[in-house]
Each structure stands twice: as C-alpha cells, then as structure tokens.
Design a protein around this nucleic acid. Sequence first.
DNA 1: GCGCTCTACTAGCGCGCTCTAGCACCGACG
DNA 2: CGTCGGTGCTAGAGCGCGCTAGTAGAGCGC
Lengths: 355, 355
Amino acid sequence: MAEQQGDAETSGGPRRGDRRPTMTDVAQRAGVSRALVSLVFRDAPGASDRTRERVFQVAEEIGYRPDSAARMLASSRSKVLGVLLTVRNPFHADMVESIYPVAERRGYEILLSAASPSRDERKAVDALLGHRCAGLLLLGPTLPSSYLAELGRKLPVVALGRRFPGADVDSVHTAEAKGVREAITHLVELGHRSIAHIDGGRGPGSAERRRAYRAAMRKHGLTEYIRVLPGDQTEESGSAQAKVLLAEGSRMPTAVLAGNDRCALGLLDAVWREGLQVPGDLSVVGYDDSHLAHLSHIDLSTVRQDPDRHAALAVQCVVDRLDGVRDGAEEFVLDPKLVTRGTTGPPRSSGIMSA
Amino acid sequence: MAEQQGDAETSGGPRRGDRRPTMTDVAQRAGVSRALVSLVFRDAPGASDRTRERVFQVAEEIGYRPDSAARMLASSRSKVLGVLLTVRNPFHADMVESIYPVAERRGYEILLSAASPSRDERKAVDALLGHRCAGLLLLGPTLPSSYLAELGRKLPVVALGRRFPGADVDSVHTAEAKGVREAITHLVELGHRSIAHIDGGRGPGSAERRRAYRAAMRKHGLTEYIRVLPGDQTEESGSAQAKVLLAEGSRMPTAVLAGNDRCALGLLDAVWREGLQVPGDLSVVGYDDSHLAHLSHIDLSTVRQDPDRHAALAVQCVVDRLDGVRDGAEEFVLDPKLVTRGTTGPPRSSGIMSA
DNA sequence: GCGCTCTACTAGCGCGCTCTAGCACCGACG
DNA sequence: CGTCGGTGCTAGAGCGCGCTAGTAGAGCGC
C-alpha cells in the first residue's frame, strides 16, 4: 500500500521530493568507493589529489552536501557546539556573531537555542542536548548552579558573563570590579561626586558590579553619595529610574552608572525626552559596549567587554576540554576597558576646582 | 580487540565521559524490546499503558533522552524546521519567540541559524540544510530570488516579510500599503500636511512602503509635500536623517513615517537630544511594532505586524507542504494595524482648522 | 625470487534510531 | 474445533555516515 514517486533516477536537476544525494551517489558517479568519498570530505589523508578533485567536482554536480546528522551519529564525537542565548539581548547578538567565525576556524558547527519568556533555559538546553552537542556555551545563563553542575558532568560547559563557584563548569567573564572602578574614577576625575548606580538585579555580573560600585565610591571618599537604584538590565528599568531621578530636580545625581547598555539607553531616552542635556545635566555610563552603544546618535560612554575575545576564549575552553587538554573547572577573567564617548562630561554646576 | 568500559550497569548517576544512555539501555532495564521503547517515545499506538509508564520511568531514572540526530536519520522525514534570522534584528527576535511555541504544538523542533555581516545568508542556510531541516522559515531574507527558487525546489520554504514573485516559495507578509495608508491618514487627520518618509532601502517591505507612501500622500492631495529621505532600516539612518531635518529649522516636516521601528528610534533619539518635543515639534510613526516600540519610555506610534500570526501562518504553511496538503506557491498577506501611542499628535503651529 | 614499506584505495561494521513484517496470545464466533 | 480480528510485543533491515582493518600495487634492497 506504500505509494512512492519512484522515478527519481531519470531526469536532470533535483526536484522537490527527490531523495537528497548521498555519499553513495557521489561514489558511484565518480567511480570510487564510498569510503574514499568519506575520506575526501573529512579532509583525511589517503587520497590522491586527482581523485580528491574529481570527488569534489562530482559532489558539486549533483548537489551533494554531507549530512551532519549522520555524521555525528557515526562519529560519536560530534563537531557541534550548542549556544544558549536570550534572543532579545543585544550583547548576546554580538557574542553570537563573534562565536561563529571562531568555532568555524576550530572545525565546529554552531547550534543556537533561544531562551525567552515562553521557553525557559532548561528547555533550550534540552534541545541542544537532543542534537548531540559536544559542548555548550551558555550566554549569561540564569540557571541554578546545581543544574549547571549536573550539566557540566555530562559535557563540557562554559558559562559566559557569570561565575558559578562550586559548579564544575568553566566560566569566562570580565573583571567587573575593574570596569566599574575605571568608570567611577573617570566620572570623579570629571568632577562628579553624586554618582548613582542603577542595579542590574539578578542579571549576569550585577552583583559584582554593585559591590564594585560601592567599593569604588568609598575609595574616592564618596560614601555618603552611594546610591543604588533597583533595576534589571532592561530599557524599562532605565527609564523608570530616570523618572525617579528627574523628580528630584536639583538634588538629582550628576552622573549615573547603569547596570548595562540597555538600561543606559532607557535612561538616556527618558532624560533626553525631558529636554535635559547629556552630559551637561547628567552623565551616563553604560556597561557592555553592545553595538547599541556605538551608534553615532547614542554615542554612549560604556565599559567594553570584548565579544571577540570572550567568544574566542569560550570556544577554546570547550574545545580544549573536548580534546582532553584540561580537566578542572577554570575561570577566565578578561579585563574590561572603559570607552569614553559622548555621554560623559564635567557636571554643569560643580567644576573640578570645587573639590 | 574492541575495548569496552562495560561497567555502565553498576554505579549510580552518569559521569562525564560515560556513554549517554540509549534506547537499548532503557529497553534492557525495563525488560522490553528496543522497538517497544521506540514506540512509546514516538507516542505510537501498540503499547499498554502499564508498559508505557514503566518505560518512561526507567528512562527518567537513567537520564535517557532521544537522540534527534539518530531520529532524523532513521525517519527520513525529519521533524525539524530551520529558521534563518539576522541576529541583531529585534523584529526577528520577536518572530523567533513566536515561532517556538507554534512549532512545538505542531510537533516540530526549531533550529536557528544566524546571518551576520561575517556570515552571509547562504552560509546560514547551508548549515540548516546540513542538519536535515524538513523546511525553512526565512526571516526577511535578502537572498536573490533565483537562489530562493532553487531552494524551494528542494524543500518547503517560506519567506517572511518579503515577496518573491517568480520564485516557487510561499511568503507571509503584511499588506504594507494598508499599514502605510492608515499611518498617513492618521497623521493627516491630526492636521499634518508636511509628512516625510525615511526609506528602508533594500530592506524587506521597503519598496512597497515607499510606493504606498507616495500613493497615500497623493490621495490626500499632498503631492507637493511628498518627500522620501534615503535610509536603510537602521537606527543610524534614522538619526542621520534627523540631522538633515533639524538643519531645516522651521521648514522641517511636522511628521515623519520611518522605514521601521529601529529607524524611528534613531530619529527619536536625535530629536529628543536636540531638545525638541515629540509629538509637539515632530510626530513620528514607526513600522513593525517590535518590542522596542512598546517600551514605556519610547511609546512609539507604529504599524503593528503581528509576530504571532506571522509565525503561526508561516509554520502552518511549511507543515502543510510537508504533509502534502498544498502545492503551488502561495502568498499570505496579513493586515497590519496602526497602533497609536505617544509619538503622534497634532502639529504645534498648524491647527486642524487651517485646512 | 623474497620481504619490506609506502601510497591509494575498498569492505564492512556499527552509531541510535524508525518502521515494516510478523509472532504469540486472547476472546469471540460459527 | 478451527478461524478470525485485535492487542501487545519483537526481530531485523536500513537511514548516511565514520572509521578500522585490510588489500592491491608500486618501488626498493638484497
């Protein structure tokens, strides 16, 4: 009763529904064995240059493309890295763009899985596991440490932008404290004293940034100006806190260190909208240097976390583990760098000389 | 000579490096055949409820998870849809979030592949094909029509947000003309006459929007006010055109229809920054209603393209083709809807009565 | 002639799964 | 008693590939 179209042999180009060509097809047409074709496509030694060329040519002709599924099935050691991201996060977007070329250079494919309000990170990770990823890169995961530890026991995992002490997983993140310290010092040198911080809530790096902010302020003798406003690394929280600050009129801080760039953006929009001048009335520093920050009309001073270096390190990290080079959990800490652009300047009313 | 670890039976939880459990493991431990386990996991008829339960329980115990790679290899009909997106595009992010639940409901997995400046769309599509996707959803592809046609011959493809007359692929997009018309009518009713349009360049839907803008302006007898500013659907182009407009002082248009939300955002930022009031000095309408638009501090009037409906239609479209329900290329046109928020209002100087 | 190494290639098993064909057993019916 | 249809299960053949073991042939030294 099984019905077939069954006439796939005859005519020219591939049509919808035609079986896609396999290695066997290439082998037959090139007059060699299947194994030889496999060799060629794996770029393994043992085939003459002439044959190699011939195989590639035939493959091109019939539109052959190796089947990753079969490939990873056959070689249990799959060449696929899974990436967990939050699809709306611009910094994650930057990271993904950086990850692709690095992984490719190392001979790995990338599989993306997005977490979102309707699809939690566990589910996204499950999908990656189902596809036989050899290792996982987790971008700013909010998964519980215990789950991560369990995951780390199954396959090499690296968390980006977040530390997981205790869990046996590698992590790559920036020295948050250093970035924050540089930002505060920059603002203080410009003459600011009342510098507030909009918190990043439970977001990656937030706890460290918050601590570092307090420490830096104390170091500059500005303990009395310490002020942490609640937030959550979104534009919404930036604009919400802007409203709070704007309501204070002249008692408003002269500078704000936002929890990340998105938060800074929300803040800027709200402040601009009220007709205030940046940096004249308020200086703003972001965190991440996502591509939003360099847009010319935003021109945000921010703390740069180099996505390329993050990506390179993270991929290296997982690949090394897969190759059995390393074993214990390691923490890679990158130095962030303050990038001063147009949103920071001396406060209008208090000159540098006032100190 | 084949060496085995062979002690997988004994100890407790899985350790790194342990072979991941397979169907055979589950079968053995549950005292049934491998085929039975397969049945159960495919939710196919032919197993008693008691056995079903037992199998699931054992699977849970040993942490079994079906291997999608092997699965799609075995059943040539893979249950995977590939999604091509531009990782930085917020509207794409919205779409992806909508696609996941719809696909899941239809029993399909989703594989994401991101295009970026360093990784062109062809490459991204190739990766999807390599993973045996049964069908493809292309978000705002900029691929040449001929390539798409070729792709469409190999597997069901649906393009979102862009029409491809000629190529044998389905498409889902909004009635751009209708959205633009509504937007212009809204502005005209508010009393605007000098309404400019920032073009979306070669972006999806731009050509249609440009044409519709011209037509709508003519329809309202505002031919002499028609003004199309060059752009490309990015924040940059929005802010760049803002500078052009601001330089014109009082001869500036009183309203702008941006090519998309991102462009509108760039425009807004630049305008706010110059201390102008929105909508007092300038009304702005976006296009997409990406999540940026509803952020409270942006509160952008925009033309809504419902991502949920787009996603549902697109997935349905591909799935139907896979099931052999439809055959010819079809075009699904959704009605967009103007959402009036805080960036549109009557122009300051010219009242409604002036007409 | 023999044995050796080196290159270029092939045979064939098995990765973890799906799926068709078929088997054992049950109660019902003539 | 024999045959039927149905239920619950199993055997086993692949899916497209990687990879190990092996083979054929050429070249070389003695």
